[in-house]
Write a protein that binds this DNA or RNA. Structure first.
Ligand SMILES: NC(=O)c1ccc[n+]([C@@H]2O[C@H](COP(=O)([O-])OP(=O)(O)OC[C@H]3O[C@@H](n4cnc5c(N)ncnc54)[C@H](O)[C@@H]3O)[C@@H](O)[C@H]2O)c1
Ligand SMILES: NC(=O)c1ccc[n+]([C@@H]2O[C@H](COP(=O)([O-])OP(=O)(O)OC[C@H]3O[C@@H](n4cnc5c(N)ncnc54)[C@H](O)[C@@H]3O)[C@@H](O)[C@H]2O)c1
Lengths: 253, 253
DNA sequence: CCGACTTTGTGCAAGCGTTCACAAGCGGTA
DNA sequence: TACCGCTTGTGAACGCTTGCACAAAGTCGG
């Protein structure tokens, strides 16, 4: 029974080696939420490098990343102490350390399965290769698509998934098939040795424990937004009657 | 008080009444994480309805949704007590209550801004309308696109965003423009009265407090996957020395 | 070299969210 | 009606995350 979202780790550790052990130790202890933020910091920092910024304080970086500065510093402390008190952080140093922790020193080839509306968009998207995630293979079940190049890469038939993934050392599989096909595709990716899956189909995938799945479910996102609209409407209807909301805050009409 | 579909949702113009107040109270207390899961339960339950299932236990539903059963029951308890002990939940009752809490009794019109690769995929996607999120407007800055129908809807020019959004009662704005344009587009959406934004551009948006933003950042998702690969690789390298990993689990060579 | 000033890194406490475990409640059965 | 087995609903414990507040550690001007 594998959980859909890879969370909850924090187990006991047993380091044995000299310097490597420390990195491992650190990596294991980083909360999932912090990892997601580190990726955001990395993006912001990359922008800073392009602008020629060499040094940045936790206050500046945190506001650019939309978090508070204490949280930012705590997050950075998980990966080590690379700041200079009274000055801030060296942008390039920070970038390289975050990249190391996120495992971005290695290239991660991506395979997209299901070259429909979404699959086309993903295959054409320039943002992946530029961040170290080259799209190395495309798969579809439609024979009319096989051989057709999309985003510069010819589509392979899904039946060749095992050999092609092995050949091109695919480490991340992206599922963009209809929901009915998703579990089967997932199983084939897993058989092909892919251990990381990004799933766009609105289904809960069952995978072995050694496979990491993350899902992107746009309908869920919309429903969360919808919930907030409803909540706000309710609050307004209920609390604005006397012009004052909870905590005595005045609500605009 | 049986709130069924189509009940025009008393929220806006109704006077205070105890049942509403209770719903309000409940809605406010639901943790964000639980809201996201409720949306998943809803999807699973919809599938159950289609299969003719009328009753379901927390155990069954939780495993179909990929969570543990205690969490599921706790989540459902946030919205009220609609199960029958010894039996389980009536699927349709549960569906209607979750829909009510998520605010899905109302339609939420969606506007997509930036009709490029991703925008096209979104506009063509049938999964939104079918879940109560009709795509009501499309916008782009490219004059060659204005008037061109995508997914059955003609693209409007971004300059008309305020009037068109008002006319079509857009309540959710989706940003699929290049990152450089995202903040400006966001500002225009907010000016147009849109209070919910789903952002695909890899930037942190600045919005007023009364606007809800959710972001979908695929590069971040990939980097989180990358982190787990790296962590696993490190663990294997470090722990496999004596052939035994954490928890005494033997790691494959 | 010193002292004022700035900013990091982190111990700690409070807040949330998750999980456990079990009493309460219900349907079925005799 | 009384009992039994099953499943819900939830209080309480636990553990992760956040935010505060401040000592430590560095810079810089004199
Ligand atoms: N289009 C969007 O914007 C969007 C948004 C959110 C979620 N999604 C989800 O993403 C998935 C894809 O959406 P889409 O709009 O691109 O659908 P689509 O129908 O346009 O494309 C699906 C593609 O998958 C291929 N396919 C079907 N079965 C397959 C199999 N067994 N193996 C390999 N390929 C197979 C089809 O040939 C087709 O090319 C769906 O699950 C959808 O719910 C799409
Ligand atoms: N394509 C993907 O699969 C993908 C994946 C992840 C994230 N994204 C992000 O989504 C966004 C869109 O990606 P894309 O691949 O569709 O890009 P794209 O270049 O294909 O499309 C962008 C569209 O936005 C329009 N546009 C530009 N400025 C605008 C403005 N000010 N107002 C309105 N429209 C404007 C352009 O005319 C173009 O049609 C980007 O921010 C990208 O980083 C895309």
């Amino acid at each position: 029974m594998a959980a859909q979202r890879g969370e909850g780790d924090a187990v006991v550790a047993t380091p044995r080696n000299p310097a490597d052990a420390e990195v491992r130790e650190r990596a294991r202890a980083i909360p999932e939420a912090a990892v997601a933020r580190l990726a955001v910091y990395l993006r912001v920092l990359s922008g800073m490098v392009d602008q020629g910024v060499t040094t940045i304080s936790s206050e500046e970086l945190s506001s650019a990343a939309g978090v508070n500065s204490a949280k930012l510093r705590k997050d950075l402390s998980y990966i080590g102490s690379y700041g200079t008190r009274g000055v801030g952080y060296d942008v390039e140093v920070l970038v390289s350390h975050i990249e190391r922790i996120l495992g971005l020193t290695r290239k991660h080839s991506v395979a997209v399965v299901g070259i429909g509306n979404l699959g086309h968009a993903l295959a054409n998207y320039g943002g992946f290769p530029s961040r170290g995630f080259p799209v190395a293979a495309l798969f579809d079940i439609d024979p009319d698509l096989t051989g057709v190049p999309v985003g510069g890469i010819p589509v392979n038939h899904i039946d060749d998934i095992a050999t092609v993934c092995a050949e091109r050392e695919v480490s991340i599989g992206v599922i963009a098939t209809p929901p009915q096909a998703a579990q089967a595709v997932c199983d084939r990716l897993v058989s092909a040795g892919v251990q990381c899956i990004l799933n766009f189909a609105p289904v809960v995938l069952q995978v072995p424990d050694n496979v990491e799945v993350r899902k992107v479910d746009l309908a869920v996102e919309m429903q969360i937004l919808s919930f907030h609209v409803a909540r706000r409407a309710d609050e307004a209807a209920g609390e604005v009657v006397n012009g004052v909301g909870v905590d005595g805050v005045v609500i605009r009409p």
